[in-house]
Amino acid sequence: MAATRLRFKEVLKYIAVLAFIPAIAAAGSLVFDEQRHILVSLAVAAAALGVFFLGYEKKQVGTRRLVVTAIMTSLCLFGRFIPVIKPVAALVILTGVYLGCETGFLTGALTALISNFWFGQGPWTAFMMLALGLVGFFSGALSKVLIKNRPLLIVFGAVCGAAYSMIMDVWTVLWYAKGFSPKLYLAAVGTSIPYLLSYCVSNVVFLVILSKPVGDKLMRVKIKYGV
């Protein structure tokens, strides 16, 4: 009984989060005029983050899990200082896969928030938090499949890299043009292809190298210290 209720809640959670992205576009184009797209999308991103953080506040989370989350976040932060190829998303993915959706989301979102203290804080922070958080969330959601199947994990990493880049392109367009226009979006995707490739390559490379050592260490923490 308890198990089914938990499942139902999990599914609800997935739907809630999944619904946010189309909501950004839909609500923006239907309800408001073109000029407000950026405000709407920011509001939605902020709301999504707010819902998550308030939910997180209510949950029972062990101190050890808190600290392990903090450590994975700071390893990601550390990774963001490496030039050109960055292990950030790969680490967020591994965190999600081994420690679950919530920890994955939190690690991604906080990495974006904190690293922008050095790389520049601004309205785009909310967008980055959501994008990177979702990478962690989905890796947690697909954990059962990804944990056993390494090639799939690597493909997933490449997809995440592309998705992250394309979500951030939405932001670029909204920011410049205020309203969303498919033509500008294609142009933005086109100009950001080098970034897209660098994200994909970084994720693939680092998942190949890191998945075993990081995975082993996270498993040990999970088993020995009951995180």
Binding site: L66, A70, I71, T73, S74, L110, L113
Partner: peptide
């Protein structure tokens, strides 16, 4: 968590 991770960095 955020302030811990800044310290850990």
């Amino acid at each position: 968590v955020a302030s811990c991770s800044i310290r850990y960095l």
